[in-house]
Design a protein around this nucleic acid. Structure first.
Lengths: 149, 149
DNA sequence: GTCAGTTAGTTAGCTTTGCTAACAAGTTTG
DNA sequence: CAAACTTGTTAGCAAAGCTAACTAACTGAC
């Protein structure tokens, strides 16, 4: 079926609903991010660095769907708080490699736990079947997001 | 089952997954919002005004999960572009009631259509069953968001 | 009826995040 | 080697979020 074929009305309404949902979900969690000592974008970038090993600044910007100057600033903030180190690449002097410090790792885990706890509370109240639907939907939606034109 | 009972690991992972998904969904749509002539928060506020009839500034701020000063500025921006009118309440001089102008309504619909089209493209490629899951999940997640502590 | 307290919204000032444009330094290639 | 490309940074702008402090208007107790 084509993207504008049958079920267009349905599709549009779904799209709108998810857009609004994403906005409200993030606003609901923002407070917690701040309490964790890191804002959302910083936490998100730190998370990629922690789990994705040493990574270049450009790759990190691409992963976070952000332009390089924005990532430069995010990384500088993380470095100022000693959560991340910039390392020179021995082979290519232009490249900056990013690595999390021990402090960065432990802060990430603490912050993530605190944030997740907040969202996890109401998710934990759901039935197992409802959580199953959320799980399936998250996989579908991840695919949708990765295919945004 | 309690919120921290069985399935805690599962719940935490779901929470984390949805948080990250929301961030990336919004970043993917940001470009389109700008092209629509309105930023995301403005579009979102305008949407509440258009569909929710005349509404007070405080109620709108609460609905958008934002503090009053933030909403004052969003509304001022919308008013400057003549998308919204501030109206005095005849009974209570403190209250500001917000109403969309005709221009505001048409711009909302145009912007919404443009934005939705972008997200709707990949959603339209899904099977009907997958869309069904997304629909169920959106209802479940809306309940989750409304219960964020 | 007046005065204290509360409520609704605004103003001022700060931080963070996003962008583009312009630049510096390093690498590759012709 | 010089030209062109790549990587990251700096500078400067706008938007959105906040708190603190203020004005104006309403309410209630006396």
């Amino acid at each position: 079926m084509s993207a504008r074929g049958r079920g267009t009305r349905d599709t549009d309404e779904l799209a709108d609903r998810w857009h609004s949902l994403a906005i409200h979900l993030l606003r609901g969690l923002r407070r917690e991010d701040v309490q964790a000592g890191l804002t959302g974008p910083r936490l998100s970038a730190l998370s990629v660095i922690v789990f994705g090993g040493p990574v270049t600044l450009g790759d990190l910007a691409a992963a976070e769907q952000v332009k390089p100057p924005t990532m430069t600033r995010l990384v500088s903030a993380l470095e100022r708080e000693q959560l991340v180190r910039r390392e020179k690449d021995p082979d290519d002097g232009r490249i900056v490699r990013l690595r999390a410090t021990a402090k960065g790792e432990s802060l990430l885990h603490a912050g993530r736990a605190r944030r997740v706890r907040r969202l996890a509370a109401p998710i934990g109240e759901l039935t197992a079947a409802e959580r199953g639907i959320l799980r399936q939907a998250s996989e579908i939606l991840a695919r949708v997001v990765s295919r945004l034109p």
